[in-house]
Simulated assay, not measured.
Amino acid sequence: MQSALFFFEVGSLSQNLSLFQTHFILFHALYRLNQLGHETQTFNIEIHVLSIQLNVISANSTTEPSCYLESDGLRDYYLDWNNFDKTDSADVASLLSQFWQKYNKNALYTPQLVEQAQAYFEFDTTPTMKELKAKYRHKSLEYHPDKGGTTERFSELLNHYKVMKNAITKL
């Protein structure tokens, strides 16, 4: 395993994959630290997208930290190193696209994402809807799980198709 310092060197946050890896390591460490606080019943860390807060548990407190009373999919995700190891650049692009689609529909269609989708479909310029649909049909025959493809590749195809379709309709 590589040293965590590698991910914090100058320039390590300039690529989406290394940014994801750095974020993953940070959140993995926070959740591990939170486990320690829970096990020792001395503190808990509230970990949210926009804030991280340390809560010290007093010696006479009888309540368990609330973060361990319920299922936490994010905690499970960040504590599983397989998620770090198996995530590649395409996965990160898909995760980012899904994130922006969920939290800010307009940001899904940033120039960078449109450029990536255009390259994915091998267009030099913005295509017509007819050209996009033809490329989409061709790739869907190859990537669809029922045709021998995988769910991941087909999901990536759908994400790129949505980005291009929106870019074309906004012209």
Rank of each mutant, 00 (worst) to 15 (best):
G149H: 03
G149E: 07
D76M: 11
L54P: 01
N106F: 02
D88K: 03
N83A: 06
H48I: 02
E142Y: 05
Q101I: 13
S97A: 13
C67D: 10
Y103S: 04
W100T: 15
I45P: 00
S58H: 07
F121G: 05
I47N: 04
W81E: 12
G37P: 00
L54E: 03
H48N: 13
Y109M: 06
L113N: 15
S71C: 03
C67H: 04
V49C: 10
T63K: 06
V92M: 03
Y109S: 12
N55C: 08
A119K: 08
T110N: 15
L96P: 00
T42R: 12
L74H: 10
T151G: 06
F99N: 02
D72T: 00
P127Q: 07
E46R: 09
L79V: 01
V49D: 13
L141C: 09
A93M: 09
L54H: 05
K130I: 11
R137Q: 14
K135E: 15
E39P: 00
Q112D: 15
K133D: 14
F84H: 05
H38E: 03
N83T: 02
K105T: 13
Q112G: 06
S71H: 09
E64M: 03
P65N: 03
K105Y: 10
C67W: 03
Y68I: 13
N104D: 15
N44H: 14
L79R: 01
L96W: 00
L69V: 02
A59Q: 09
D88T: 08
K133R: 14
D91A: 12
Y68R: 00
V114H: 02
E39T: 05
L79D: 01
L79C: 01
Q98A: 14
N60I: 02
K102T: 12
L108E: 08
A93P: 00
E39Y: 03
D146Y: 10
I52D: 04
A117N: 06
N106I: 04
S89G: 10
Y136H: 08
L74I: 05
T63R: 05
K147G: 05
D124Y: 04
L108T: 11
P111T: 07
G148E: 06
Y78L: 04
N104L: 08
Y68V: 11
K147H: 14
N55A: 08
T126H: 03
S61D: 15
L141S: 10
W81I: 14
T110M: 15
T125E: 15
I57V: 10
Y68C: 05
I57Y: 02
K105S: 12
E70K: 08
Q98C: 11
S140A: 15
L95W: 02
D91R: 03
N104H: 09
L54K: 02
I52L: 11
E152T: 14
Y120A: 12
I57T: 03
D88L: 06
